[in-house]
Write a protein that binds this DNA or RNA. Structure first.
Lengths: 126, 126
DNA sequence: GTATATGCAAACAATTTGCTCTCCT
DNA sequence: AGGAGAGCAAATTGTTTGCATATAC
């Protein structure tokens, strides 16, 4: 089953690449529908699943909801309990180090998701 | 609203403390219902939520489902793509190290969840 | 005794699926 | 032309909730 590049897919991927928040499917739909008025939430989900499979984007759960991220490199996600925001913690060497340690421990890692709850700088001043 | 210790809660907590897998609510219900035939899935969920809030247990998502763990100390969860099992990767110092690094990076961490997909030792020989 | 927790069934929210039609290639 | 994808609506899954009754304190 060869995959086909559709307008919808292009828009979704573009949006995720450009946007550096970590929107959920509904937020993505809300945005993309502005340019493609007929696109449905189901289509957004189907495309997101495809993009994740192709490793063009990554996904992770917060609460009950999947969030999507156009940045695929190793990084850490921080969920600020005060601002509610999901922030990127760019520490690729740290993730690399964790990866190595886990491997030494006898588990061959593929994907590593590190999700931290706590407070970001902005959140602390609230 | 002061909390009350019920038979149901005791059984659920006991089960999670003793069992070192990482069952989901349904699996817990399946087990606990053997001793408490009238307990419902809703009650299991209510108690699990309470226990998580009280920090007697921890929870984390894999795929669409919450999994629960009676072990609350810092550790890493490995999801083996071959066996399907969730294994504990006991590396408390590593998690401590990650915690420290994240703090230095400007995010004050509370809970850290590290979830790795890959293959465990047993999975590799399959 | 009183209020919190249970059991039951119904509600919910996020995500998926079946079907028909569209439109890439 | 042929088939992957879109759109729509309905289904499914995991989890939560409202209400009457049971039970812990």
């Amino acid at each position: 089953m060869k995959t086909r590049t559709t307008t919808q897919q292009v828009h979704i991927l573009q949006y995720l690449r450009q946007k550096h928040s970590h929107p959920c499917a509904e937020a993505i739909h809300k945005e993309v529908v502005k340019q493609l008025p007929t696109i449905t939430l189901a289509t957004v989900y189907r495309n997101l699943n495809k993009l994740v499979e192709q490793e063009d984007i990554i996904s992770f759960k917060v609460g009950n909801t999947y969030h999507y991220d156009g940045k695929v490199g190793d990084h850490i996600h921080g969920i600020c309990e005060n601002t509610g925001k999901i922030v990127d913690i760019e520490q690729p060497e740290l993730v690399q180090y964790v990866r190595k340690k886990i491997h030494h421990h006898g588990f061959t890692p593929k994907n590593i998701r590190i999700i931290v709850t706590g407070t970001c700088k902005r959140g602390e001043t609230q």
